[in-house]
Amino acid sequence: MSIQHFRVALIPFFAAFCLPVFAHPETLVKVKDAEDQLGARVGYIELDLNSGKILESFRPEERFPMMSTFKVLLCGAVLSRVDAGQEQLGRRIHYSQNDLVEYSPVTEKHLTDGMTVRELCSAAITMSDNTAANLLLTTIGGPKELTAFLHNMGDHVTRLDRWEPELNEAIPNDERDTTMPAAMATTLRKLLTGELLTLASRQQLIDWMEADKVAGPLLRSALPAGWFIADKSGAGERGSRGIIAALGPDGKPSRIVVIYTTGSQATMDERNRQIAEIGASLIKHW
Rank of each mutant, 00 (worst) to 15 (best):
L74D: 01
D231I: 12
L79G: 02
V117L: 14
L218N: 04
L28F: 03
E108L: 14
N152W: 08
L89G: 06
L47Y: 05
A183D: 04
R63T: 13
I283V: 14
E277F: 06
N130E: 01
E119C: 15
A215W: 03
D99N: 04
P217C: 15
D207E: 07
T126R: 08
T193I: 13
V117Q: 05
V157K: 06
C121V: 05
Q88L: 10
M67P: 00
R41D: 14
D36C: 15
D48E: 05
L160R: 01
T147Y: 06
Q97A: 10
M153S: 05
N272P: 02
G236T: 09
D83Y: 03
V78T: 09
V106C: 14
W286D: 03
E35A: 12
E35W: 02
R63P: 09
V106T: 09
N173A: 06
E26I: 15
G234L: 00
K284M: 06
S68W: 01
D177T: 00
V101T: 14
D161K: 03
P172Q: 05
E270A: 04
T261A: 14
E46S: 07
P25Q: 12
P253T: 07
N152G: 09
R159V: 10
M268S: 12
V29Q: 15
T198N: 05
S233I: 00
R91T: 11
T179R: 00
D212I: 03
L28M: 09
L150P: 01
D250A: 04
G154N: 12
K109I: 15
G52D: 14
A148P: 05
P253M: 09
E26D: 14
H285V: 11
L282I: 14
L111M: 11
G90C: 05
L135M: 14
R159T: 14
V78I: 15
R202G: 09
G216A: 12
E26M: 15
G39R: 09
I259F: 11
A246H: 11
S221F: 04
R91E: 14
T179D: 00
A123N: 06
G154K: 11
V72A: 12
K190W: 06
I93R: 07
R273Q: 11
L47M: 11
W208E: 11
T193K: 15
F64M: 13
A148C: 04
L73P: 10
G248L: 00
V82W: 12
A132P: 00
G52W: 08
A266R: 05
D207N: 10
S68H: 00
L197R: 12
R241Q: 12
F58H: 03
L219E: 10
A84N: 15
L167F: 07
Y44R: 00
L89V: 11
G141R: 08
R255L: 09
L150T: 14
A40Q: 07
D33W: 03
A133R: 01
G248R: 02
L28K: 13
K53Q: 13
R189Y: 04
L205C: 06
I125Q: 02
R220C: 03
V101K: 13
S96F: 06
L100H: 07
A230T: 02
S57H: 06
Q86Y: 15
A84S: 14
L120A: 07
A245E: 00
V257E: 03
L28S: 04
I243T: 14
K190A: 15
N134S: 05
G279H: 03
S68A: 00
R238W: 06
L160I: 14
P181M: 02
R255M: 04
V257H: 02
Y44C: 02
G85D: 09
A245R: 00
G263W: 06
E210V: 10
E119Q: 14
V106G: 15
R241K: 10
P143L: 10
D129R: 01
Y260D: 01
V29K: 14
M115C: 10
R41F: 09
N168A: 04
L192I: 15
E62T: 03
E108P: 14
T116I: 05
T112F: 12
P65M: 02
V72K: 02
T131H: 12
S128F: 01
G85S: 07
R255K: 09
G263R: 10
M180C: 09
A124H: 01
P253G: 05
Y44Q: 00
T116H: 12
M153N: 06
K284F: 08
V78Y: 03
D113H: 04
S57N: 09
Y103W: 11
I171V: 15
N50G: 09
L74A: 13
L47V: 08
T139G: 09
L247E: 02
M268D: 11
I259S: 02
P217E: 14
D99L: 11
K30M: 13
D177C: 11
V31K: 00
P65R: 02
F149W: 12
T69A: 03
I171F: 15
L100D: 02
D113W: 03
L192E: 02
A245H: 00
V117G: 02
P25Y: 13
I256H: 00
D48P: 02
A124T: 11
L120T: 06
L28W: 04
L188A: 05
E237G: 12
V29I: 06
W227C: 02
S51Y: 11
L282Q: 14
A222Q: 08
R220E: 03
Q88W: 13
D174W: 03
E237V: 08
G279Q: 03
R189D: 08
L137T: 07
R159C: 11
K190V: 11
G239M: 02
T112K: 14
L74G: 03
I229H: 02
E62W: 03
G251F: 06
H24R: 11
A235V: 07
L197I: 05
M67Q: 07
G216K: 11
A34F: 09
K30L: 07
A133K: 01
I54M: 15
T261W: 06
D250I: 04
M115A: 06
C75M: 08
E56Q: 04
I54T: 12
L167W: 00
D207Q: 04
P60D: 14
L205N: 01
V31D: 00
V72H: 02
L73R: 01
